[in-house]
Amino acid sequence: MDISFLVVQILTGLAYGMLLFMISVGLSVIFGLMGIVNLAHGVFFVVGAYLALSVLDMGANFLVALGVAMLAMALLGVMIERFLLFRSYGNELNQVLLTFGLAFVLADVIKMIWGARLQSLPTPAVLDFSVTLAGITFPTYRLAVVLVGCIVAVVLWYLETRTRTGAIIRAGVDDREMVSALGINITLVFAGVFAFGAALAGMGGVLGGPILGMYPDMGFDILVLSLIVVVLGGLGTWKGAFVGGILVGMVQIFGQAYFPSLSLVIVFLLMAVVLLIRPSGLFGRSHAT
């Protein structure tokens, strides 16, 4: 086996895992906190990428496009939470159905605005080269994605364990009613978490744009993978999404390299095995409900 092939595969798997981490973390915390599986979360990823494409077309640079896309996704997230999901709090099935309908509608809106064909974002010029080290060539952009993913993880770690907001969210995942009984405005936290999760998903979409590309129905393909990440890692914590994302990313990339016809089956088996050993995921706390 070729060492450099192996290293590049690992790097690709890591980069892919980071993208999955960015989309899954919002899904996981929204689910843990509000009890909603946001089926529109995959579409956030894709819409973010398309928005960045439009901004880039206007001549802006990659960072500006990333910022605009993240801001727009946060706004979209708040709007969806306030105007749509807010109406059916206490009825989680209805909320899941609403996000599903939304995913359906948004996929068609994408088709309307950007067309149905496969597109991709250009790799930012600053990072569009390769580093050769000890005979192994690394595409710099993927290294950068891994780095950004790690930074996001550190920021999330800080937010979760060192800030008041993080404490509220951790408490909310464990016992929502108790938190609101303590006089904390939990609905505000809900809106904030929704916006933050959507922005991170959008960020994943933009960063993934040069690697994965995008197409209107991509939202659901990526959603299935991130659902597996969430189930695997456990609910309501960035740690689960981080480790689960890397695991699924690696398995998916190596599966594609060695057993191309079985890659998704292997990912699914991995999830089944983990669930049999730990029903609430790797880092999930067992829920009483």
Partner: peptide, 20 residues
């Protein structure tokens, strides 16, 4: 229109909002 999924998705959302 080729965007029939949009039409049906919106009808679906309205029905969910109206109740079950």
């Amino acid at each position: 229109t080729e965007y029939w999924a949009l039409v049906l998705g919106l009808i679906f959302i309205i029905f969910v909002l109206l109740g079950r």
